[in-house]
């Protein structure tokens, strides 16, 4: 894939703006002056050693974690204590979790229609049509009436992606979406994500799948000890890392 194709579809509109974001867990300084600008259609992969703050960073974007200093603006809405703002942002930001977090007491279809019905106020029939559309996209429409416990891990994660897409979000956050999967199921989930990227979705993805980063991302961000250490397009990032810590990390995970 050429550099040109990768930058294709990236708009001028700034979707996420993080400015000097800081966060502490008690005494522990998890995020140190995070500055990050994400434009429409950008696909960003965050990587780094465990405890480096990459998950916390993306969880700050939809207020699953509260930042204590600095500004975050998502889709022109300031993320502050205002509940209306938080709700507005969460409506536009979808999230996929490491452990799927599907609702086990609801069917796959009900998982996908719950939020569109109660948050978007969609008619049930329309919500179900939307849900079936996205379930087809993740290639499991035939499982719609099963319960999450009856599906494999890979299928569950694809349902989780469909569930987030049913809200028609402008931004998708992925928090280690393949880390809890058996190896043979990683590919089906990554393929779904690649399809999403090709459709121009703005994506932030915490992952250790470096192959995915190379093919899909147009920017890779390396974090360590709560700081953004280095960010670059994937070719440059993998072939010619600048920082010593990045080199060490890449040396450990790429054999």
């Amino acid at each position: 894939m050429s550099e040109n194709a990768k930058s294709l579809g990236i708009g001028d509109k700034i979707m996420i703006q993080m400015q000097d974001v800081n966060k502490w867990y008690g005494q522990f300084h998890v995020l140190k002056d995070i500055n990050l600008t994400v434009r429409q259609g950008e696909r960003i992969v965050l990587c780094g050693p465990s405890g480096s703050g990459k998950s916390t960073t993306i969880r700050c974007i939809n207020r699953l974690e509260e930042h204590q200093k600095g500004n975050i603006v998502v889709d022109d809405v300031e993320l502050n204590g205002d509940l209306k703002n938080i709700e507005a942002i969460r409506r536009e930001v979808g999230m996929v979790f490491q452990h799927f977090n599907l609702f086990p007491h609801l069917t796959v279809l009900e998982n996908c229609t719950l939020a569109p019905i109660w948050v978007r106020k969609l008619p049930k029939k329309e919500a179900e049509e939307v849900a079936m559309h996205y379930l087809k996209r993740v290639r499991i429409p035939d499982q719609a009436h099963k319960y999450p416990g009856q599906l494999s891990g890979g299928q569950q994660q694809r349902v989780a992606i469909a569930r987030a897409l049913c809200m028609k979000p402008k931004i998708m956050l992925f928090d280690e979406p393949t880390s809890a999967l058996d190896p043979e199921m990683v590919k089906e989930v990554l393929d779904t994500m690649i399809g999403l990227a090709q459709d121009g979705m703005t994506m932030l993805c915490v992952t250790h799948e470096m192959g995915f980063a190379r093919t899909v991302a147009n920017r890779v961000i390396f974090m360590d000890k709560g700081e953004i250490v280095e960010q670059a397009p994937p070719d440059q990032f993998f072939d010619n890392p600048q920082n010593e810590r990045t080199k060490l990390f890449l040396g450990q995970i790429l054999h």
Binding site: N62, R63, L64, E87, R90, R91, V93, G94, M95, F97, H99, N101, L102, F103, L114, A115, W118, V119, A160, R163, A164, M167, L173
Partner: peptide
């Protein structure tokens, strides 16, 4: 009920 359930519901914008 695992905290992940609350997080998933929150991330979907449910009150």
């Amino acid at each position: 009920v695992s905290h992940g359930q609350t997080e998933a519901a929150n991330s979907l914008g449910l009150k």
